[in-house]
């Protein structure tokens, strides 16, 4: 598998990689097996061979709030990403192209790094007074505090890589600068837009902290629901495993599709590879 010159190194490297793969995969395999274990075997750590049962899946699908949680998570993430793209794309373009915004890049980075601890208190109090606790609007606003800066930062990196002559050409071809932006530059960074959208979606979909404190039974998102299974201890393990799988499978598929673009986005034009 490896091209190291001596045998010892090749063997050691192979063992190390297999060990790493095992450590990464094991929890996934385990959680999948838990989800199809017959409920009565749920708490037994030593049983690996059993007849698969879809009881957990059925219960989650038809007798729990998880479908509502999925809908909430999806709605919140989708709206958050949509707003982030609408506000972030033009701003990222301006930061990338026009003079006088070098400080703004660091402002965006600072916003991205802002600890939720300092924002959650005012958010909670404000939404409480507006009677918007347990509303999806509140969570969307909260998620925008990290998705919007991340998406903007992502796109700056992609816009930086589009040659400036492209919009010069479009302007000479008879378009205004803003037309050049949406007719020529936006299509040219389509992969970047997709990557930023997926990444922002994943961030919102995965959030527990804000959702835990700002949602109630109506607007509860999937991560909060997953955390909720804990209180019922071992007997709910199977259903929790199902909920975990539902939360992670779409995200794994989505993020796999943007792996290539992820680095450029995270670097945001600050790291030149």
């Amino acid at each position: 598998m490896f091209d190291y010159p001596n045998l010892g190194a090749r063997v050691a490297a192979t063992i190390a990689i297999i060990l790493a793969l095992f450590l990464v995969l094991f929890p996934f395999v385990w959680v999948f097996l838990e989800s199809i274990k017959p409920p009565e075997l749920g708490a037994r750590p030593d049983v690996w061979v059993f007849t698969p049962s879809w009881a957990n899946w059925q219960e989650v699908a038809f007798e729990s709030d998880v479908p509502l949680n999925i809908a909430n998570s999806f709605f919140v993430a989708a709206v958050t990403v949509l707003i982030s793209l609408l506000c972030g794309a033009p701003a990222a373009y301006a930061f990338s192209r026009f003079r006088g915004f070098s400080g703004a890049r660091y402002g965006i980075l600072g916003a991205e790094m802002m600890p939720p601890a300092i924002l959650i208190l005012p958010f909670f109090l404000l939404l409480y007074h507006l009677q918007l606790i347990d509303s999806r609007i509140g969570v969307i606003a909260a998620h925008l505090t990290f998705v919007l800066p991340v998406v903007t930062w992502f796109l700056i990196g992609f816009f930086d890589e589009v040659p400036k002559d492209l919009e010069s050409q479009a302007m000479i071809d008879g378009f205004t600068r803003f037309q050049a932006f949406y007719l020529v530059i936006l299509p040219a960074v389509r992969p970047g837009l997709a990557a930023a959208a997926v990444f922002g979606f994943v961030l919102s979909w995965n959030d527990l902290f804000y959702a835990l404190l700002l949602t109630g039974s109506e607007s509860r998102t999937l991560p909060v629901a997953i955390a909720g299974f804990w209180t019922f201890r071992g007997i709910e393990m199977g259903k929790m495993a199902v909920a975990i799988l539902i939360a992670i499978i779409p995200v794994l598929i989505l993020s796999h599709s943007i792996q290539k673009h992820l680095i450029r986005g995270i670097g945001g034009g600050a790291v030149k590879y």
């Binding site: 040659p163 002559d165 492209l166 010069s168 050409q169 479009a170 000479i172 071809d173 020529v184 299509p187 040219a188 389509r190």
Partner: peptide, 13 residues
Amino acid sequence: IAMVFQNYALYPT
């Protein structure tokens, strides 16, 4: 006017 750029500036999409 029309202009031809050093790196051609063709619209990639």
